[in-house]
Computed example of a mutant assay.
Amino acid sequence: MDISTFEKNWEINFTQCYSNARIRYSDLSNLLQLTAGEHATIAGFGFKEMAKNNQSWVLSRIRFEINRLPKWMDVVRIKTWIQNLEGSKSTRNFEIYVNDQLYVTATSYWAVINTVKRAPEELAVPIGDFKTFSDRSSTQKPFSRLNLTQVVKPIGNYTVKISDLDIVNHANNVKYLDWCMDLLPMELVLTNQIVSIEMNYLKELRYNDTVEISGNSTEKGYFMTVTKQERISFALEIETR
């Protein structure tokens, strides 16, 4: 059996949805990462195997391109594959279908970190005959290094809570997206105006860290940052219709 590509079906439940019955952007991101995690486990470089070497995958960049959002009780089929895997870095792509219609595509960039040293290092687990697909992309545009010099203004503050932490003992990356979305106009989030979301994860945040959330409208949509002591930990770029 070829394990180099992977598919998983998920049924959207009401706890994952906004008040318009469409899935939250953070929960959509979470489903992609759960699917990636299952694929990595089957392939032999999942969480438990990585932990034996004090290693973990961390998400560095991700880009979503959205035709429409799945809704409550939809069964979504997520396809995933690795485009590139070399040293400490990996590019993983996704396609999200509902009833065989392509709803969302995504491309993501991951790094291996040593969970003790909190620093990147090469993957210690052998990948064997696992195949990558260097010519198989999913999105129209690749993920990118966002322009962090864009002008933003403070719109809120947040202190990292226990419920924000994940098993690696830092703020889980889907939490950053929720913090930002909660500060955007409701009509922007709930009326299917968003066509792409791109995120850069730059510095990890830990329990009780206090951050400033800033943002500003752009020609294409909206740009936001999460900053701790004047250093950007997270950047978000939204493109709207």
Rank of each mutant, 00 (worst) to 15 (best):
I197H: 12
I155D: 03
Y176H: 12
R92K: 04
S138G: 13
F14E: 08
L31W: 10
R231G: 02
S217W: 02
R92Y: 04
T191Q: 09
F130V: 03
F47H: 06
S19T: 11
D135S: 09
L31F: 11
R145M: 00
S134H: 03
Q33A: 09
E198A: 01
V98A: 13
T5D: 00
D164W: 09
S233K: 01
T80S: 13
H39L: 05
W72C: 14
N169Q: 10
R118K: 12
M224Y: 10
S108Y: 00
F94K: 00
T80H: 02
P185E: 12
D178Y: 10
F47G: 03
L205A: 09
L69K: 02
R63N: 00
R231N: 11
I162F: 08
Q33M: 15
R61V: 04
A43H: 10
K117W: 07
F64M: 12
D209Q: 05
Q101D: 14
K71Y: 13
A40K: 02
H170I: 06
I12R: 06
T240P: 12
A43T: 02
R231F: 03
Q150G: 02
D129G: 09
S233F: 01
V189H: 07
R92D: 06
I167N: 15
G44I: 00
L183T: 03
S144A: 09
F45C: 02
T227Q: 12
A106T: 05
S26P: 00
I127S: 15
I162M: 14
L69W: 07
Y97E: 13
K153R: 08
L177H: 03
K153F: 02
T5H: 10
E38S: 14
I167H: 12
N20M: 11
F14K: 05
R231P: 03
T159K: 04
T107V: 12
N173L: 11
V125T: 14
V226L: 06
S56R: 00
I12W: 03
I12Q: 04
P70W: 09
S108W: 02
I23Q: 06
A235R: 10
Q16V: 02
R241A: 13
D135C: 01
T35R: 00
Y201W: 05
